[in-house]
Amino acid sequence: MTTCPECEGALTLGADVIAGEIVVCGDCGVDLEVLSITPLTLAPAPQEAEDWGE
């Protein structure tokens, strides 16, 4: 269990998560890159900014 660096929402990662993996926050939807496992470090990953043609 950790927290999202974007919104501080609770985040549960699988036991088999590996460095470099992209995970998604269920609260704010941000893509997070697992930078390291020990210590567990997450950072927002580059994400397409979609304006839906508006």
Binding site: E6, C28, G29
Partner: peptide, 8 residues
């Protein structure tokens, strides 16, 4: 519900 999502 809080809806502030970067995806979906």
């Amino acid at each position: 519900r809080i809806v502030k999502d970067k995806g979906g």
